[in-house]
Computed example of a mutant assay.
Amino acid sequence: MTRFDEQAPIRLAYEEALIEWDRAAAQLLGDQNADRRANELHRHTAAVRDAITRANSRRDHHGLILLDEQRDRFHRRRRQRQFEGIS
């Protein structure tokens, strides 16, 4: 799994499964190391998911800015054509 990109969905799903397995082992066997591993991996995957969310938000925000700029250009051209048609 380490060969997959840290943000690859398959890797994140695998890590989530490991977290659940380690938590189950911690509860069933009283394994403090498994509990520690589960908590560390959970913190790590949460940080990765947060980074993905922030990157997607930035991309979406940039797309909205571009859309607003295109819409403004369209309306300016439309007004200009209407004005030229009236004169």
Rank of each mutant, 00 (worst) to 15 (best):
M1I: 07
M1F: 11
T2I: 05
R3P: 07
F4Y: 15
F4G: 02
F4C: 04
F4M: 12
D5A: 14
D5M: 12
D5W: 13
E6W: 12
E6C: 09
E6F: 11
Q7T: 15
A8C: 06
P9N: 10
I10P: 00
I10K: 10
I10F: 11
R11M: 03
R11S: 00
A13M: 12
A13C: 04
A13R: 13
Y14M: 07
Y14V: 08
Y14N: 04
E15I: 00
E15V: 01
E16P: 00
L18H: 01
L18A: 04
L18F: 01
I19R: 13
I19G: 09
I19P: 02
E20Y: 10
E20I: 07
W21Q: 12
W21R: 15
W21S: 12
W21T: 02
W21P: 00
D22S: 05
D22W: 15
R23E: 10
R23M: 11
A24C: 07
A25G: 00
A25R: 15
A25K: 15
A25I: 03
A26Y: 03
A26E: 03
A26F: 03
Q27I: 09
Q27S: 10
Q27D: 09
Q27T: 09
L28I: 14
L28H: 09
L28N: 10
L28W: 05
L29Q: 12
G30M: 03
D31H: 10
D31G: 08
D31S: 11
D31Y: 04
Q32H: 08
D35I: 00
D35S: 14
R36C: 01
R36Y: 05
R36Q: 09
R37M: 02
R37E: 01
A38K: 03
A38I: 00
A38E: 02
A38F: 00
N39Y: 04
N39Q: 14
N39E: 12
N39C: 07
E40N: 08
E40W: 04
E40P: 01
L41R: 12
H42I: 00
H42M: 04
R43K: 14
R43S: 13
R43I: 06
H44K: 14
T45D: 01
A46W: 12
A47Y: 06
A47H: 08
V48W: 08
V48F: 06
R49A: 02
R49L: 13
R49N: 06
D50V: 03
A51K: 15
I52M: 13
I52Y: 03
I52N: 03
T53G: 02
T53L: 09
T53W: 11
R54W: 06
R54F: 08
A55S: 11
A55H: 05
N56L: 08
N56V: 04
S57C: 03
R58F: 03
R58G: 05
R59V: 04
R59E: 13
R59N: 09
D60I: 02
D60Y: 05
H61F: 12
H61Q: 14
H62G: 08
H62N: 13
H62T: 11
G63P: 05
G63W: 06
G63E: 13
G63L: 12
G63F: 05
L64M: 11
L64D: 12
L64Q: 15
L64F: 06
I65W: 07
L66E: 13
L66R: 15
L66V: 09
